[in-house]
Each structure stands twice: as structure tokens, then as C-alpha cells.
Deep mutational scan, measured.
Amino acid sequence: GSLMYASIFGNVSAIIQRLYSGTARYHTQMLRVREFIRFHQIPNPLRQRLEEYFQHAWSYTNGIDMNAVLKGFPECLQADICLHLNRSLLQHCKPFRGATKGCLRALAMKFKTTHAPPGDTLVHAGDLLTALYFISRGSIEILRGDVVVAILGKNDIFGEPLNLYARPGKSNGDVRALTYCDLHKIHRDDLLEVLDMYPEFSDHFWSSLEITFNLRDTNMIPGSPGSTELEGGFSRQRKRKLSFRRRTDKDTEQPGEVSALGPGRAGAGPSSRGRPGGPWGESPSSGPSSPESSEDEGPGRSSSPLRLVPFSSPRPPGEPPGGEPLMEDCEKSSDTCNPLSGAFSGVSNIFSFWGDSRGRQYQELPRCPAPTPSLLNIPLSSPGRRPRGDVESRLDALQRQLNRLETRLSADMATVLQLLQRQMTLVPPAYSAVTTPGPGPTSTSPLLPVSPLPTLTLDSLSQVSQFMACEELPPGAPELPQEGPTRRLSLPGQLGALTSQPLHRHGSDPGS
């Protein structure tokens, strides 16, 4: 009898404990919600809404976190579960008819179910419309201010047509639940991603989709105040780019002037030289400038040598048109050559190039014969006009050509200096018209024969001689050997007369 009593008592207590286990969990969670309300000092109306929603959600799901349970299964099984949970929507909604099984599984994985109690606001006026909503159960109302403009029910759709707008718009009203509602919502990016994977279904979906109420604000059109608020930074940046392009296009129409201050000032006329910023005076940081632009901040801005204009002085008759350009485009679109090309026009420029290279940067340069637009006047290309890779490749080509020119210049200078040193070592320090008596009659020769300089066969020296023939050397430049009979510069000019005159010897006659 005691054994029977113990078994009955144990079973009854276990049954009672299981009955009250759900209630215990409910009270535990309710205590957490109330502690949250007390800690954050939530006001009474919002506090009442929180408690009511918790009670309804507990009775609806029995305190089970559906998302946590669903995430515990593998992905393939999750797709089947989501397809079952959203079967009513996918079967009865017209846009989803005719979709393949794979497309429906992908869509079912992207849908999220939302449960809303009465009085809950789903979308506020001015919120971004980031999702498309399908009503599965219940009814909602749409308000503009305090005026109800629409009441939607089961199988209705609200949001915005995503295929017509590249960016999400703003809501033009509040969406509030009238009863307990079940909503299926899919985010904008998720829907577009699935439709991109199934393009054959995309056309059918957009053609058959009928949005019951379009929440997009109709005033959000390009150029409206609301649109400016939504895309303020983007609009200002776009206007700045367009104004920069218009100014650079105007600059290219004036090829007669070359400016070292950047493309923003290349198009300024002579009357605007004294102004601080020219056409860019209202925004000094709008356009890029070269490193020399920092010198323009000092006094005497109108007389600054940074602004270059072609000189009108005539060229000498024998002067060549100019050196070879550094870039391939210089032959086609440049009416002034790079300062480095002028360094190779003569030997005198070679000796004085490194010492006063900055001073020569603004000297007169030889002109190319074609009066085409200036290379320095070409505006900086924006990322939309020329690819970045093209600019980098041009810079690399320019750097390689500069290296080759520097190597060639160093070799030419070394060769010229070597020839000058050899000339100085071969010439005796001094010569006299009267020579010392020699031991015999073989001493009648006034000077030792001097062998002429070897013929220069280097390509670089031939180019130097060509430049010497075309360029007029300055007075202080050293002379180079030329073709024809060679003669030492330090010898007297009348050596031929010395050989014809008898030598005057000093000596005593033994017979006297």
C-alpha cells in the first residue's frame, strides 16, 4: 500500500510541476520586462504597450523563439521550412505564380514574418522605404497627419515599386495596425538579389506586381527641396563636378596662354591676372594647382613670374625650331616645348642647366612650328573623362623618358669634360720664339709635331656638333674642335714665318 501511495504521489506532483513550468517561465520573463521598464524609466503609455505586446506574443508563440529554433537546422532544411511557412503567400499572390521551385525557395529564405499588435506603428512618415510588405492577416491604416487616407487588409501590398527607383524613397505617411496583424516583408536588397539570379522571372514579377498603396513621397523628385535634403551631399558634389568641367572646357578654348597655377587659371584673360583667384576666387580649394602655386600668395601677385606667355621676339635665322618633346602628345598638341628640351639645344645650356634650372624654367623657349593648343594648358582630366590607368601609364612613360634624357646628358657632359682635359694635357705650358741651342744640326726643328685630335665617332658628340652648327654659343662658352686643319689655341699665330727665318745662335768662333 505504501508503494502504491508513493507512486501516485510522485506522478501527481510531476504533472503539477509540468503544468506550472510554463507559468514560471512566463513570470520570469515578465519580471525581466518590468525590470527593464523600471531601469530605463519608460513612461506609462509606452510601458503599457510593452506589457501588452509581451503578453500577446507569449500567448501567440508560447514563449518560443522561432528564429532561434529555425537557425538550429541546416540551410537546406531551413529553405523547406521557410517554404512551408510562406506557402499561403507564395501560392495566392499573383506576382509569385509561375516561378520555379528554386526561385520560390530563394524568396522564402528572404521573407521575414512580423507580428504587430493593435496601435503599433510599422512605418513612420519620413522613414526610408527599405522593404516591401505583404499583409497575411489583420488590417492596417495609413495616416497623413491625423487623416486616415487608406485601410488595407489581407493580401494587400504596400511599399514602393523598387524597379522604378535606384534609391529608396521616404514614406509619405504613417502605417498603423488596427488589429493583430501578420506581415511578410522582404528587404529591398534581398528581393533585387533574387531577381538578379532569376532574370526570366524578374520581368514577370515586375509586370504582375500591383502595389495597393504606394508609400513613396511624390514630392521626392529631382530638383525638389525634399530631394535635395535626401541627396544633399551627392547633389552638391555633382554640381561641383559639372562646374569644374564647364570651366576646364572654357580653358581649352584659349591656347595662347600657358599658366603654371593649374587648370583653373589657364583660361583667365590678361585683365584677371591681378585678381586673387581668377574664376576660382569664390572657392580657392575647388581646383588643383601645381607646386608653384604656393608662391602666388606673396605680395606682387600681378607681377609674379609664374604666369607664362609666349615671347614675341624673333628667332635667329640659324636657330632650330626646338628640341624633341618629352611626351608623344607634344608633337601634336603643344605650341611651347618643355623646359628640359631647351637644355639640349647647345653645349652652353648643358654647362648651365643644373646651376640655374629654376631660373631657366621661365626663360624664352623655342617654339614648335605648329600653332596647336598648349601642352601645359590642357586641363586636368576628371576620373569620369580619362581612366586612372591611362594617366598612370603616361606618367610612367614620361618618367622613363626623363631617365633616358638624364643618362644621355650625363654621358655627353662626361665626354666633353674628358676631351677638354685631354686638350689641356697635350698642350705645353708655354712657348717662346727663341729656342735653346741643340747639340747638333738636327735641332733646327722649332717644335715637335703635334698629332691632331682623333675624329669623334660617338653619337652623342655628333649631336653636340649638330647643335653647335645651329645654335649661337654665348661669349663665355668653350669652343669644341671642328672639322678641318686643327691648330692649338695656345700656339702663336705666325708659326709659318718662324720656319722661314734663320735661327740666331749665340757662340764663340775658336779662330777669332
Rank of each mutant, 00 (worst) to 15 (best):
Leu365Gln: 10
Ser285Phe: 13
Ala430Trp: 10
Gly233Val: 11
Ser465Leu: 06
His184Phe: 07
Leu480Asp: 12
Leu456Phe: 10
Asn349Lys: 15
Thr130Tyr: 13
Leu473Val: 10
Leu498Cys: 12
Pro314Tyr: 15
His204Glu: 08
Arg247Gln: 12
Arg137Pro: 03
Arg388Ala: 11
Arg408Asp: 05
Cys337Asn: 13
Glu331Asn: 09
Arg238Gly: 11
Met413Gly: 04
Leu209Met: 11
Ser208Tyr: 07
Ser462Asp: 11
Pro387Lys: 14
Ser410Gln: 15
Leu417Cys: 04
Phe351Asn: 12
Val347Leu: 04
Ala260Cys: 13
Ser224Glu: 12
Phe311Leu: 14
Pro502Trp: 15
Val175Thr: 03
Phe351Glu: 04
Ala166Thr: 12
Ser293Phe: 15
Pro291His: 13
Leu162Ala: 10
Lys154Asp: 12
Gly267Arg: 08
Val427Ser: 08
Arg367Thr: 09
Leu456Trp: 12
Pro320Gly: 03
Ser443Glu: 11
Pro502Leu: 11
Val450Ser: 06
Glu200Asn: 07
Glu160Asn: 01
Leu178Ile: 08
Asp189Trp: 08
Ala397Tyr: 05
His504Met: 06
Pro485Gly: 04
Ser243Tyr: 14
Gly126Cys: 01
Arg176Trp: 01
Asp146Trp: 01
Asp329Pro: 11
Ser202Phe: 05
Asn172Phe: 08
Asp174Glu: 09
Phe201Tyr: 10
Gly169Leu: 02
Leu164Gly: 12
Leu448Asp: 12
Ala370Gly: 10
Pro288His: 04
Glu324Gln: 07
Arg422Ser: 06
Phe158Glu: 02
Thr218Ile: 13
Leu498Asp: 09
Pro284Glu: 13
Gly126Leu: 03
Asn338Cys: 05
Tyr133Cys: 10
Pro429Met: 13
Gly281His: 15
Glu392Pro: 09
Ser312Ala: 13
Val148Asp: 01
Ile135Val: 09
Phe344Ser: 06
Pro371Lys: 10
Leu503Trp: 13
Ser508Leu: 08
Leu426Ala: 11
Asp396Val: 10
Ala433Val: 08
Asp190Tyr: 01
Ser235Lys: 12
Ser381Val: 09
Arg188Asp: 02
Phe351Tyr: 14
Pro222Lys: 05
Lys185Arg: 11
Glu328Gln: 11
Lys250Tyr: 12
Leu192Trp: 08
Ser374Pro: 08
Asp296Ile: 11
Phe205Gly: 03
Thr425Ile: 12
Leu143Trp: 12
Gly496Ile: 12
Gly440Ser: 08
Lys170Trp: 09
Gly346Trp: 04
Gln501Asp: 14
Arg167Asp: 06
Arg367His: 12
Arg238Cys: 15
Gln423Pro: 05
Ile378Phe: 10
Pro510Ala: 06
Glu328Tyr: 01
Gln399Gly: 06
Arg301Cys: 14
Ser303Thr: 07
Ser283Asn: 12
Ser227Lys: 08
Ser451Thr: 08
Leu395Ser: 05
Gly493Trp: 13
Leu473Pro: 05
Asp296Ser: 11
Tyr198Ser: 02
Ser432Asn: 14
Gln421Tyr: 09
Arg367Ile: 15
Arg358Pro: 09
Ala131Ile: 03
Pro255Val: 10
Asn172Met: 14
Arg238Thr: 09
Lys239Ala: 13
Leu183Gln: 01
Leu461Lys: 13
Asp509Met: 05
Asn172Glu: 05
Tyr180Val: 04
Thr407Gly: 07
Gly496Asp: 04
Asp335Gln: 10
Asn377Cys: 13
Gly226Phe: 09
Ala433Tyr: 10
Thr218Gly: 08
Phe311Asn: 14
Ala397Asp: 12
Gly262Gln: 14
Leu128Arg: 10
Arg358Asp: 04
Arg167Asn: 14
Ala497Pro: 09
Pro510Ile: 06
Gly355Cys: 04
Pro373Met: 10
Ser235Cys: 06
Gly507Phe: 06
Gln421Ala: 09
Thr442Asn: 13
Phe158Pro: 01
Ser286Tyr: 15
Lys239Tyr: 12
Thr435Asp: 09
Pro199Asn: 04
Leu132Met: 07
Leu242Lys: 06
Glu253Thr: 08
Ala433Asn: 09
Asp251Met: 08
Phe467Leu: 09
Ala469Phe: 04
Ile151Arg: 06
Thr212Ala: 10
Ile142Arg: 01
Phe158Lys: 01
Cys181Lys: 01
Pro321Asn: 13
Ala469Thr: 13
Ala150Val: 03
Gly322Thr: 14
Gly126His: 01
Ser293Ala: 15
Phe213Ala: 05
Glu472Gln: 08
Pro317Val: 12
Ser302Cys: 07
Ile211Arg: 02
Asp203Gln: 05
Leu456His: 08
Ser224Gln: 11
Ser393His: 12
Leu326His: 14
Gln401Leu: 13
Gly269Lys: 07
Ile140Lys: 01
Pro199Phe: 01
Pro383Asp: 05
Arg273Asn: 14
Pro320Val: 11
Ser243Gly: 10
Arg358Thr: 12
Asp203Trp: 07
Asn377Phe: 03
Lys332Ile: 10
Asn163Pro: 06
Ala433Met: 10
Tyr198Gly: 03
Gly298Pro: 04
Pro299Asn: 06
Leu183Glu: 02
Gln423Ile: 11
Glu406Leu: 07
Ser304Leu: 14
Phe158Thr: 01
Leu461Ser: 09
Ser500Trp: 11
Pro325Lys: 03
Ser285Met: 03
Asn155Arg: 06
Pro225Cys: 04
Phe134Gln: 01
Glu231His: 11
Ile221Ser: 12
Tyr165Gly: 11
Pro263Ser: 10
Arg247Glu: 10
Gly226Ala: 12
Ser382Val: 14
Leu409Ala: 03
Ser290Pro: 15
Arg400Asp: 15
Ser462Arg: 13
Ser207Phe: 08
Gly355Thr: 08
Thr457Val: 05
Gly440Phe: 15
Ala166Gln: 08
Gly507Pro: 14
Arg388Cys: 04
Gly438Pro: 15
Gly346Thr: 06
Glu406Tyr: 03
Pro255Phe: 07
Pro387Thr: 08
Leu242Tyr: 14
Arg422Leu: 06
Leu448Trp: 15
Cys181Asn: 01
Ala497His: 09
Gly223Asn: 10
Arg265Leu: 12
Pro371Ser: 09
Ser410Asp: 03
Gly323Trp: 04
Asp182Ser: 10
Pro222Glu: 09
Thr130Asp: 13
Ala150Arg: 04
Ser272Trp: 15
Val347Pro: 14
Ser224Met: 12
Pro510Met: 06
Asn163Leu: 04
Ser202Asn: 11
Val347Lys: 12
Ala469Ser: 10
Leu402Ile: 11
Gly267Asp: 12
Arg408His: 05
Glu229Tyr: 07
Glu331Arg: 09
Phe344Gly: 11
Ile142Lys: 01
Glu231Arg: 10
Leu453Gly: 11
Arg385Trp: 15
Asn403Asp: 01
Leu453Cys: 08
Pro481Gly: 12
Pro222Cys: 07
Ile142Tyr: 01
Val175Trp: 01
Arg386Phe: 13
Asp190Gly: 02
Gly267Asn: 10
Tyr362Leu: 10
Gly438Ile: 07
Asp146Cys: 03
Ser139Glu: 09
Asp174Lys: 06
Arg240His: 11
Ile151Ala: 10
Trp206Asp: 01
Tyr165His: 12
Lys241Gln: 13
Ser381Asp: 05
Glu257Asp: 08
Pro168Ala: 07
Val416Ala: 07
Pro279Cys: 01
Asp396Gln: 10
Arg247Met: 13
Glu229Asp: 07
Met413Phe: 12
Ser302Arg: 10
Asp329Ala: 11
Arg273Val: 05
Ile186Phe: 01
Pro373Lys: 12
Gly298Glu: 07
Arg505Gln: 10
Pro199Trp: 03
Gly267Cys: 12
Thr179Asn: 08
Ser374Met: 08
Ile151Leu: 04
Pro325Phe: 13
Ala397Gln: 13
Gly322Arg: 03
Arg265Gln: 10
Tyr165Met: 06
Asn219Trp: 10
Leu409Trp: 10
Asp335His: 10
Leu473Gln: 07
Ser286Asn: 04
Pro314Phe: 11
Pro454Gly: 09
Leu365Met: 13
Ala150Asp: 02
Ala430His: 13
Asn349Asp: 10
Arg307Asn: 01
Gly233Phe: 06
Pro481Glu: 14
Ser171Thr: 01
Leu456Glu: 07
Arg408Leu: 08
Ser259Lys: 08
Leu209Val: 09
His204Phe: 07
Arg307Thr: 12
Val258Trp: 08
Leu143Asp: 03
Leu128Gln: 12
Leu417Gly: 06
Glu160Val: 03
Pro449Tyr: 12
Thr436Met: 11
Lys239His: 12
Glu193Val: 06
Gly262Glu: 13
Leu178Ser: 06
Ala497Gln: 07
Gly346Gln: 15
Thr248Asn: 11
Ile221Phe: 12
Asp329Val: 11
Ala414His: 08
Pro373Ala: 08
Ile211Asn: 03
Pro475Met: 08
Ala411His: 15
Glu392Lys: 06
